[in-house]
Design a protein around this nucleic acid. Structure first.
Lengths: 153, 153
DNA sequence: CCAAATTAGTTAGCATAGCTAACTATATTG
DNA sequence: CAATATAGTTAGCTATGCTAACTAATTTGG
């Protein structure tokens, strides 16, 4: 791996090295796991948006766009695709007719849960080769990352 | 997070839970870090392919396609884009005129190194809030993941 | 109360990124 | 040397990202 120097002189080289390795490991892990998604027959943007609806509940288009960090026109087409595949349904808000209420259908929920199952199972099968201690270390790391991600917004 | 059951009864629930949390943390971490890439002015497929050329050296189109897990026609266009941006150059193999030798230009190397610097620095700044012990745990986790990814091909 | 401004979402049009099928050009093989 | 195999490209489809410009609905200010 290459050297990384910084303008932030307060940061220890060790911190950079760990950031680098964590970054690389995350990229390679997700690349593997993502191969499982082909079986769903839907593209990554749709799966990701649908996943928000399944695990966080119904959302408006704008909220969904914000959650997925894309612009409204992009989300508009993603939702149209999900609707064509009967994975979501849309209702107009009674209070404010400009707002959409987008929610996952039972079919959408099933698709996401199966996809998620495949991803997690794939990972778990590989983690199964580890010792108890190693597994505990991964658990600790996940917790630390969750904390950072949560704190830093 | 949702329940995940498995047909692999030999896998402990704890393993699933950790796989799940690791998966989620990796997704959110990379989503953050990726925002830095907009500054390069190149798309993700180009950055990723160029990164292979910079860190692993020149490759043929087929090799690059395999490394990026895409089909040759896809890589053909990615390389064409990189070439237009003067980030790579192409030579024909002397022994076998069918083969391309694709390599990063100095400009390509600079672009990737700066982009990488931004990503790693962003992460490192956030890791900097951690204690020595927490940092060490993340380092240990990265190492364990590298091992699994390497061993399982 | 209604005109102006704001907000939610869509449409149009562009670029990138993925695919398969069908092509060209070069090497290899029988 | 003809047939086959291999490397890469081209054409044409879908999906996913953007901005600019639009429609429709709501809110606000005079």
């Amino acid at each position: 791996m290459a050297e990384v120097k910084s303008k932030y002189i307060a940061l220890a080289p060790k911190t950079f090295e760990i950031a680098d390795r964590l970054h690389s490991a995350a990229i390679h892990m997700l690349r593997r796991v993502r191969r499982q998604d082909a079986l769903t027959g839907e593209g990554p943007a749709r799966l990701s948006a649908l996943s928000v609806l399944v695990f966080a509940g119904p959302r408006t288009l704008k909220e969904l766009a914000a959650a997925e960090q894309v612009k409204p026109p992009t989300m508009s087409r993603i939702v149209a695709g999900l609707r064509r595949s009967r994975l979501v349904e849309i209702e107009r808000d009674v209070r404010d007719a400009r707002l959409m209420r987008i929610y996952a259908t039972a079919r959408g929920v099933r698709l996401i849960k199966r996809g998620r199952q495949r991803r997690i199972e794939y990972l778990a099968v590989h983690l199964n080769a580890l010792t108890r201690g190693e597994l505990a270390k991964l658990g600790a790391a996940a917790q630390i990352l969750e904390k950072i991600l949560h704190d830093s917004q």
